[in-house]
């Protein structure tokens, strides 16, 4: 085995191990931390494949963005430090079965598909290429999805602002009255 393969197996074991810990731990905050490590492991896998841009984006979006959001929402819940009750037996049995079937399904699919190496040369993607591809209107350009996602995000942002806006005093009082 070459050193690169060894590193690949170490990273994979790290991702799977932390992933299993994330679903089996009974403390909710620890679960989020294990999830964080699992996502970092995936970024490490991208680095291993020399896809630095993708790895950096993985860390920014998932680790710096989503996990921080999850941790914040855990902080704001009351029982963040306590252990969850043990799941009932029947539920664990069914989830184990689901996992088994899922694994079997994936293994079957992989064994049916024959992987052919596309090219032996490592692809060296520069950020410039990614940028031009992203805003390209010709073949294999991603301008339309890019713009669609931009509009989606804009809608989400405007929605946030509208929700966060201070409502008029009159409306607020009627709202409060309706609650009471």
């Amino acid at each position: 085995m070459s050193p690169a393969t060894i590193i690949f197996y170490i990273i994979s074991a790290f991702i799977l191990g932390t992933g299993v810990l994330a679903v089996t731990t009974r403390k909710i905050f620890r679960a989020s931390i294990w999830l964080l490590f699992s996502l970092i492991g995936i970024a490490a896998l991208y680095f291993w494949m020399q896809l630095e841009f993708l790895a950096a984006v993985q860390i920014i979006v998932y680790v710096g963005g989503i996990v921080v959001l999850i941790i914040f929402s855990i902080f704001l819940t009351i029982k963040s430090g306590e252990e969850m009750p043990k799941p009932i037996l029947i539920r664990s049995i069914f989830s184990a079965l689901a996992v088994l079937f899922g694994t079997g399904f994936v293994v079957r699919l992989i064994s049916l598909y024959t992987f052919k190496p596309i090219s032996t040369t490592a692809f060296n993607l520069s950020v410039n290429q990614i940028g031009t591809q992203m805003l390209d209107t010709k073949d294999f350009g991603y301008l339309l999805p890019f713009e669609l996602i931009s509009i989606l995000l804009l809608a989400a942002m405007i929605g946030c602002i509208v929700i966060a806006l201070k409502s008029n005093d009159k409306e607020a009082t009627t709202f409060q009255n309706s609650i009471q």
Binding site: I40, E52, A56, I59, I60, V63, G64, G65, V68
Partner: peptide
């Protein structure tokens, strides 16, 4: 690394 600055801002968010 060819994404130097992006790498720094990515890791520092951890």
């Amino acid at each position: 690394i060819n994404i130097g600055v992006l790498y720094v801002s990515a890791i520092s968010s951890v």
